[in-house]
Structures are given as structure tokens and as C-alpha cells.
Design a protein around this nucleic acid. Structure first.
Length: 441
RNA sequence: GGCCCGUUCGUCUAUCGGUUAGGACACCUGGUUUUCAACCAGGUAAGAGGGGUUCGACUCCCCUACGGGCUGCCA
């Protein structure tokens, strides 16, 4: 496989969410699979909406997930190059100046729509004579620039969607430079993908039409368009638009809620593909098991709650060495820290749950005793040997209680668990006893 | 309105015209377990609707319905 060059090109106009992550991850995995290059490109041509805060935020999010970029680029630093490329296209007759105001364009669109026709730009400005253009400028009109599409069918073999064919005549000539001189994304992106040698682009299906026009732009520049793949967009569990739930699906929020990076990565690398969602042990496993072509074209339902069982499973396997500092930070004495972790890890969903287990062990729990068990528990407590307790304590104690009360099985063990831990569920009591620092009565 | 894509178990999906329609997750049952989890075994469960083409259609074609996307001097 030839080394690929891929890129993740977010617009720093907000915090990134699961949808962005899916795109980023796919491009990252493709690059890594071939020993290629993964470029983080900040598409910040929209200076109004782009903010440093979001650039910092998205870098943090990517680092949290371990998606390291090999190269970073910023479109706002490349405006000179875009103007240069624009001049080339003007010279080739593929850029033309237009003079309609936004209001006029809006009117044209509405008119066409009312007539039941597609709202495609009519190229009125393209047909202007040199004198007419001059007159427009003399009037004080600021020109904006469109790319002249070749009106034939634009076709490509999409890595996910298969063969795509779009009639350029059904698409407006894209505006690439605004009247105020602002370079627009469609153009900057095309120039960059060619200049930076991007070989593969995976992005959302919302870009399919852009791809059609960008292929022509790249070709007009004398470049070879990369291989494209458009993944379907994510929806909520009911198939509703994900954007409505964006609030809870920003990466920083998921991180805040305790989702493990590998849970998120494992889900996003497989959801919507024909391969089963499996928790990967490492990024390498994710890389090895990734295949863009295994993804389907249908919208993908995502239930963010699925991330929690996955997180739980990851934590249950996590070795003590990986969490040593976090356990110490809770104030767990070093002598019992490792056994505490090994016992508690199977009973937490997110790391934050660890605290309540430590507090239980450290302070004891408010006993949970049913009315009918009151006497039984009191009697049992009387038989409880003095601390310190070992792994054997539970067995010895319950044997003694059984002997004294005649109770056995569930009726014996359950009330004792509830009395000692205040809970119905938890780690094995034999493991709990040596960790329990205190018993409340 | 136009253009593009889509619709198979609850969910993600496999099937390149002939299958008992397969798998994974979830769920249910049983086993194991003091509980939960884990683990093992088993199980329930699906081709949007209608027309064609064909000996035979989930698969190819058309229509309808439904879903998603695009249709910006945003990205």
C-alpha cells in the first residue's frame, strides 16, 4: 500500500463533537494504516467565526483521544497562495467576476423556486461584456468571483457510496471569493488538498456536492483529485438529527462525563460499518481492523449511552499501574491501593465512581437492614472477629454465623452484605473484608 | 421544487438471483456465582409498500412512502 496523505480539516467555529471525531478518526486511521501523513488543517477562512479558543479546544480533544497529527496547517496563513491560485484560474478563464448583491441573488433563487425550477445561478454576470463590467465597477459595485463549472457530469468512485455521478448543470457555479476579498472554504480547501498532496479524503456526506465542484476546481488547477469517501451522517437513537443533541455529544462533554477515549474510538471506528463494534486494546488494533469500504451509506444511529458499558468494560480490565496516581489521589493508603483497585474496578462505570467505593471502605456504610433481619444481623455482628481482617475473614465469620443461627445461602449472605456495605451489589465480600476500614452499626 | 444517497432482527450490518436470510451488540433463558458483573451454553427476532423482469428476486428495473444530505458572497 502506498503511503497516504490524509487530513482532518475542522473549522474552529465551535467545539468538536462525535460527528467530527468520526471524520477525524477515519482519516487518521487511513494515514496510519499505510505509514502515511495525517494533517490537521484548520479551515479558518471565516475569520468572523473562527476563534483561537476553539483551535485550542480541538487540539486538546484530539490529544485526549491520542489522534496525533504529523503536520498542522492553517488556512488563514495561506491567503497569498489562494490569491495566486485565483489569478491562475482567472488566466485560464475559469474564474469570472459577478456583481449581483446577496439580495439580488436571493431574489433570483426565490423566483426560480416559484417557477418550480432548480435554484441554479443563471450566469448572468458571466455574459456581461467588458464594458458592462466596467460600468458595474464605475457604479461602485464590488465584484465577487465564481468558478465556471464545466457543465457535464462529474463522476467519481466513492470509497463508501460507490459510483457517484452529479450533473454540473444542476449545481450553481460556486462563489470562491467574496466581494470583500474573503477566500471561501471551497476554494481554499481545493488548493490545499492539491498543494499538500492529499491522497485520500474521508468526510461527511454533507460534502458530496462540494466534492463534485472541488474535483473540477482541482482539475482546473492541473491537480489530480484525491480519492474521496463520504461517510453517512450520524443521527440520534431515534433517527433524529444529531445537531439537536449536540450539546451532550461534544467531545469535551463526553470526556467530562467520564467516557474512556478507547470506548469512543472503538465505537466510532466501527459504528455504521459491517464490522462488529469491539473494544480495541490499542490504537494499533484500531488501525489494523479499519476499513473505510466496510461502511454503509445509510444514516447511522448513534446512542451515546452505549459509551458507558464500553467504558465500564475497559475500566474492569485496567491494570493498577495505569491508575496508580488516580488511586493515590483519592487518599487510598499505598499498602492497600492495588487490592482496592482490583476489587473496585469491576464495580465502576466511570473513574469518578471510584470515590464512592473508597469512601465506603474508609468510612463504612450506613447499614441496610430489613426489619425481619434485625435480630439476625445484631447476632452476627456480635460474632464478627476484631480487625484486622483478611481474605479468609468472611468465610470464617459466615461459617460461625451459620452455626449460631442456622441460616444459610442467600438468607445468610445477603443481609450481611447489606449490613456491611449498605448495598445489594458489589465486589465479592471475601475481597471486601480486608479493605473495609470501619463498620458502622 | 431540483439534485444526490439511503430503507434487512431493537441496534450496526452480511448476502455480488437459488441461503433453514448469517454475524455482532442488546435482550431473554439456563449453567456458574453470596449479590452485581464476567464467563459458558442456548433462544426470541428482520428484507417499507406496490408493480414488473425471471423457472426463481432481499438481491435487477419502475413507482410510492419514509429517512438523510445538498440546493449560501457558511464550512
Amino acid at each position: 500500500m502506498r503511503p497516504t496523505v490524509t487530513r482532518f480539516a475542522p473549522s474552529p467555529t465551535g467545539y468538536i463533537h462525535v460527528g467530527n471525531l468520526r471524520t477525524a478518526l477515519m482519516n487518521y486511521l487511513i494515514a496510519r494504516k499505510t505509514g502515511g501523513t495525517f494533517i490537521l488543517r484548520l479551515d479558518d477562512t471565516d475569520q468572523e467565526r473562527s476563534k483561537q479558543e476553539y483551535i485550542d479546544g480541538l487540539k486538546q480533544d484530539l490529544e485526549w483521544l491520542g489522534l496525533h497529527w504529523d503536520r498542522i496547517e492553517q488556512q488563514s496563513k495561506r491567503f497569498d497562495r489562494y490569491y495566486e491560485a485565483a489569478e491562475e484560474l482567472k488566466a485560464k478563464g475559469r474564474f469570472y467576476e459577478c456583481f449581483e448583491t446577496p439580495v439580488e441573488l436571493d431574489l433570483k433563487r426565490k423566483k426560480l423556486l416559484n417557477m418550480g425550477r432548480p435554484p441554479v445561478y443563471d450566469r448572468a454576470s458571466f455574459r456581461l461584456s467588458a464594458e458592462e463590467r466596467e460600468a458595474m465597477r464605475a457604479e461602485g459595485r464590488q465584484g465577487y468571483w465564481r468558478f465556471l463549472l464545466d457543465q457535464n457530469r462529474i463522476e467519481w468512485q466513492d470509497g463508501i457510496l460507490g459510483p457517484i455521478s452529479i450533473d454540473a448543470a444542476s449545481v450553481s457555479d460556486p462563489v470562491l471569493i467574496r466581494a470583500d476579498g474573503q477566500i471561501l472554504y471551497t476554494f481554499a480547501s481545493s488548493v490545499d488538498d492539491i498543494d499538500m498532496g492529499v491522497t485520500n479524503i474521508v468526510r461527511g456526506a454533507d460534502h458530496v456536492t462540494n466534492t463534485a465542484t472541488q474535483i473540477q476546481i482541482m482539475q482546473a488547477m492541473g491537480g489530480t483529485p484525491p480519492a474521496f469517501a463520504h461517510h453517512s451522517l450520524l443521527t440520534g437513537p431515534q433517527g433524529e438529527e444529531l445537531s439537536k443533541r449536540l450539546g451532550v455529544l461534544a467531545l469535551r462533554d463526553l470526556r467530562e462525563r467520564g467516557v474512556e477515549p478507547m470506548a469512543l474510538l472503538s465505537l466510532m471506528a466501527r459504528l455504521g460499518s459491517s464490522k462488529p463494534v469491539e473494544i480495541a486494546g490499542s490504537m494499533q488494533e484500531l488501525i489494523d481492523g479499519f476499513d473505510v469500504e466496510s461502511f454503509g451509506a445509510a444514516p447511522t444511529k448513534l446512542d451515546s449511552e452505549d459509551l458507558f458499558p464500553m467504558t465500564r468494560a475497559i475500566l474492569a480490565q485496567r491494570p493498577y499501574a495505569a491508575v496508580k496516581d488516580q488511586v493515590a489521589a483519592l487518599g487510598v493508603p499505598e499498602a492497600i491501593a492495588e487490592s482496592f483497585w482490583n476489587v473496585a474496578r469491576e464495580n465502576i462505570t466511570v473513574m469518578a465512581d471510584l470515590r464512592q467505593w473508597w469512601e465506603l471502605f474508609r468510612d463504612g456504610a450506613e447499614p441496610l437492614v430489613d426489619e425481619e433481619d434485625r435480630d439476625f444481623v445484631a447476632q452476627a455482628m456480635g460474632l464478627l472477629p476484631p480487625q484486622p481482617w483478611t481474605h479468609e475473614t468472611w468465610g470464617q465469620w459466615t461459617a460461625a454465623v451459620k452455626e449460631a443461627t442456622g441460616r444459610k445461602g442467600k438468607g445468610l449472605f445477603r443481609p450481611l452484605r447489606r449490613a456491611l456495605t449498605g448495598r445489594d451489589a458489589g465486589p465479592e465480600m471475601a475481597d471486601v473484608m480486608p479493605l473495609l476500614q470501619k463498620v458502622r452499626k
